[in-house]
Amino acid sequence: MIFGYARVSTKEQNLDLQIDALAKAGCEDVFSEKLSGRSEKKPKLEELISKLRKGDMVVVYSLDRLGRTSKELINLLSDFKEKGIQFKSLQEGIFDTTSAMGEAVFQIIAILKAMEVQVLSERTKDGLAAARARGKKGGRPKGSYDKNKAAAAVTLYQRDLPISEITKSLNISRSTLYQYLRNEGIK
């Protein structure tokens, strides 16, 4: 059986491109999730892996959808090979783990992908440090703390009202509610 796996990092991102490409590649069953690649647990990937049998194939849109680090990818593909499971990446089209050349290419690409992630991370950190050196602060602007709403939030929360009702009645976001509760000493 040919299985597909699609993943995007945030809920705002769309899976359609990956799912369409996997369907076109002949995937009979596609597992998808919206979850950061840095997450240690990937429930849909774990579910997919639990269904794999000897002779099956796993197809992904791109290697980085499967894992963030070369070690993670190499371990996963080694497990696939031991279990007789084939692997294919659509973006890195030369990928076919059933041959020695395909395995070598996999290891090279995995290293390059990991390096790319590291370089992007370093650039981001350098950019943030440069901005801080110029006196810029990142993140959301601090909102004003409304002591009356905070007190009301605590009262409603202690009455075991659902979070959605509290946020609606006070016209605040969920994160603001939790901030109020933390600042008022409620865990």
Rank of each mutant, 00 (worst) to 15 (best):
L90P: 04
G135C: 05
G135Q: 04
G127F: 06
A114V: 02
T155R: 14
R134C: 13
N148I: 10
G67I: 02
L128G: 08
D16F: 03
G4R: 05
N75Y: 03
R140F: 13
S36L: 00
T124L: 15
D146H: 02
K54N: 10
G135W: 04
K54I: 05
E92W: 11
G84H: 02
A131T: 11
E72C: 06
Y145M: 09
Q118K: 12
S173V: 04
T10R: 10
Q86I: 08
S121P: 09
K54M: 08
D146S: 02
K41D: 08
R182M: 11
D160T: 06
A151M: 09
S121G: 14
L181Q: 01
K147S: 11
K149L: 09
P162G: 14
R159I: 08
K54V: 06
S32A: 11
R7A: 00
T167I: 15
N148S: 11
S169G: 06
R159N: 15
S99Q: 09
L156N: 07
I74S: 10
S36F: 00
L128W: 09
L156F: 14
I108N: 13
E82A: 14
A129V: 14
S36V: 00
D64L: 03
A129L: 15
E116D: 12
K187M: 03
Q18N: 00
S50G: 01
G185S: 05
K168N: 14
V60N: 01
K88E: 10
D79F: 04
R140I: 09
G84P: 03
E103F: 09
K11P: 05
E12N: 11
V117I: 12
E116F: 03
I85W: 01
D96W: 05
I163E: 15
L17E: 05
N14R: 11
A153H: 01
S9L: 04
L177I: 02
G138W: 13
K24P: 05
K71S: 12
Y61N: 07
E47P: 07
L76N: 03
I111F: 15
D126H: 08
D160P: 04
G127K: 05
I186W: 06
Y157E: 03
L45K: 01
V8N: 05
Q179F: 15
R134T: 11
P162H: 15
A104E: 09
G135E: 03
E72H: 12
I108C: 14
K187D: 01
S175G: 07
L35I: 11
K142S: 11
Q86C: 09
I172E: 00
L52D: 00
R38W: 04
E165Q: 09
N183L: 11
K71D: 12
M1Y: 12
D146N: 07
I109D: 06
G4K: 04
R65E: 00
K83N: 08
L128K: 12
S144H: 13
D29Y: 14
S62T: 09
K168C: 12
I186P: 04
E46T: 07
S78P: 06
